[in-house]
Simulated scan of single mutants.
Amino acid sequence: MSLLKLGIPKGSLEKATIELFAKSGWQIKLMSRNYFPEIDDDELSCSICRPQEMSRYVESGMLDAGITGKDWTLENDSDVEVVANLVYSKVSKKPTRWVIAVPGNSDITSVEQLDGKRISTELVNVTRRFFDQQGLNVDISFSWGATEAKAVSGLADAIVEVTETESTIRAHGLRVIHELMESNVQLIANKSALADPWKRDKIDSMVMLLQGALNADRIVGLKMNVAADKLDTVISLLPSLNAPTIAQLYKQEWFSVETVISEHQVRDLVPQLKKSGAEGIIEYTLNKVI
């Protein structure tokens, strides 16, 4: 039997990834102190590994596909194919950003002023390529963590660090002087695996269901009954991905109306629908929108 080897990211993306797969139709069960979780699909095997290393394992063929950040694929300069960009609802709707930051009391206000300075970061290779492109000579050292503290304590003149809101950077008394790059979650695949028709089809099916689950985030279905003489008024109130579905009730001058809307619209819309004659209004969650 054919088998697709899939990498699940350890750390901040782990829980969100497992929840996304559950919504897409796969139950992944973590085993205590085990890096090989169970999955209810005989055609899949899972491995837990750090996002920083994922693209290396995928490129080497140890994994056929895996979920990681764009930043780490670039950092490793891995020869893999990006199959899908995934906007994680449980993490952030915004891409993460890698920024250059300096102490708040530093005289440095531009990238050019970092020539000859010390930079601390976990994203060493991307940072080095950036400064090489700028024609600047900087001393880059790898940071094992607590990168903000390197600048605060004077061990570095600047840091390159990942952020979403900059709140942690500001809390350490640092200020951003440049945005290096944006990153997002990606499903990457080994090129040889994609050349295999069975594996390609399995990956494509997975992508369709994962994207469908992400598309359904914060979207709900509404269903209601409406008398014929009030139908036009109710329909005029309804936003929809396309157009609402309308079906006449059996031997009645009533219609069943169904639509899909954004979750935040419900609280204002339902009272309006009720006042306009809609009855039996039902709101239901969606697992996937494909």
Rank of each mutant, 00 (worst) to 15 (best):
Q248K: 08
R267K: 15
E258L: 00
V257L: 00
Y250K: 15
Y250I: 13
L269I: 06
T259E: 07
V270A: 03
V260T: 04
Y250H: 15
Q265E: 15
E258R: 07
N242G: 12
D268Y: 06
S256P: 06
H264G: 04
P271N: 04
P244H: 02
F255W: 00
F255H: 01
V260D: 01
P244K: 08
P271Q: 02
E263M: 06
A247S: 13
I246C: 03
T259W: 04
F255K: 01
A247G: 07
S240R: 08
F255D: 03
E258M: 07
W254V: 11
Y250L: 15
E253V: 02
V266E: 10
Q252W: 04
N242R: 09
D268R: 11
W254E: 14
E253I: 03
S256K: 05
V266W: 07
S256L: 09
R267Y: 11
I261R: 00
K251G: 09
V270W: 07
R267M: 14
I261A: 03
T245M: 14
I246V: 09
Y250V: 14
W254Q: 15
D268L: 09
S262C: 05
H264M: 10
Q265Y: 10
Y250Q: 15
L249F: 08
L269E: 10
P271W: 02
V257C: 01
Q252R: 13
I246A: 05
D268P: 02
Q252E: 14
P244V: 04
D268T: 10
V266N: 06
H264I: 08
K251H: 13
E263P: 01
D268A: 11
I246R: 01
S262D: 14
T245E: 14
S240I: 07
N242A: 13
T259R: 09
S240Q: 06
H264P: 08
P244Y: 02
L269Y: 01
L269K: 09
V266T: 11
E263S: 04
A247V: 13
T245Q: 13
V270S: 06
V260P: 01
H264K: 11
L249Q: 04
A243S: 15
R267P: 02
Q248V: 07
V260W: 04
F255T: 02
K251D: 15
H264T: 10
V260C: 09
P271V: 03
I261H: 10
A243R: 15
V270F: 04
E263L: 03
L241W: 07
S240A: 14
H264V: 12
V266H: 05
E253M: 07
V260N: 07
E263G: 02
A243E: 15
L269G: 07
A247P: 01
A247H: 09
V257T: 00
I261W: 07
A243T: 15
L249A: 07
S240E: 08
I261Q: 04
D268E: 12
Q248E: 03
T259I: 02
T245D: 12
V260K: 05
Q248Y: 00
P244N: 01
T245Y: 11
T245F: 12
T245N: 14
E263H: 11
L249V: 05
T259P: 05
P244Q: 05
E253W: 06
P244W: 06
I261F: 00
H264C: 05
T259L: 00
V260Y: 04
A243N: 14
F255C: 05
P244E: 05
V270C: 06
P244L: 01
L269Q: 10
A243Q: 14
